[in-house]
């Protein structure tokens, strides 16, 4: 189940990244919001990974190269604006993808129909913060611009067809770009320029090729389970 791994790993890895904000978010409401979004994603990851095998083994005992998530979701949190940029790019994509999967008859339709309503709230949250930061102070505008620019090169991979997902990827891409452009215009921000992917022809996250920060994230995520196999509390 290549597709279950790809979609499940996207949700799992982003969930972990968002969880890293616990205790560090700028205000209490955001602490709670990011943790809630992380929890939704973790729920999706559990369903998806269970379609592919044992959820715990898949999450905690695979090596870096066996993960199939896009590189976007493994990128470090950066400042709050960069996290919002990652949320905007990813939740917009995930909502459009789940809308399409929910309409189909494939194995992901029940989860997609359920999760798309949750993801709509994630996207709404990211859009509101993009507007506030972009159309806020000079400092917040500049930070939002930097976050969007820094992650732009990871957005091309989102539209690499995933085997097993019956989706028209090019129309998904066009819908994503239209939506992102509209939000950024309202936020007085420019759509970043520059390449949408890295220069490496061997592929990226979907082929198991990840960026350097991912190994450190996995080490932290898997440490407890590997040190104390089967531990419960």
């Amino acid at each position: 189940m290549t597709a279950a791994l790809a979609l499940g790993d996207d949700a799992l890895v982003l969930s972990h990244r968002l969880g890293e904000w616990a205790g560090h978010a700028p205000v209490l409401e955001e602490e709670v919001a990011l943790a809630n979004i992380a929890l939704d994603l973790l729920g999706q990851a559990r369903v998806l990974l269970s379609l592919a095998g044992d959820e715990d083994e898949l999450a905690y005992l695979r090596e870096e190269r066996a993960f199939r998530n896009v590189q976007l979701v493994e990128q470090p949190n950066g400042d709050f604006a960069q996290t919002i940029a990652r949320q905007l790019y990813f939740s917009t994509y995930q909502e459009l993808l789940y809308e399409r999967l929910a309409r189909g008859t494939g194995p992901f339709a029940p989860l997609a129909a359920k999760a798309v309503k949750e993801v709509a709230y994630h996207r709404d949250h990211a859009e509101h913060w993009t507007l506030r930061l972009g159309d806020g102070t000079d400092e917040s505008h500049e930070r939002m611009r930097r976050g969007l620019d820094a992650l732009w090169r990871f957005t091309g991979e989102l539209f690499e067809p995933v085997e097993g997902c019956e989706v028209e990827w090019h129309t998904l891409h066009d819908a994503w770009l239209t939506r992102i452009t509209s939000v950024l215009e309202r936020a007085t921000l420019a759509v970043p320029e520059g390449p949408r992917r890295g220069g490496w022809a061997a592929g990226a996250g979907r082929q198991g090729i990840h960026t350097e920060p991912f190994g450190r994230m996995l080490a932290e995520m898997q440490h407890l389970h590997r040190s104390h196999p089967g531990a419960t509390w």
Binding site: E29, E30, V32, A33, A35, N36, Y121, H125
Partner: peptide, 13 residues
Amino acid sequence: LLSRFSSTACKAL
């Protein structure tokens, strides 16, 4: 609205 997310995922503050 103060926040779209509250003490549980199903609630807003």
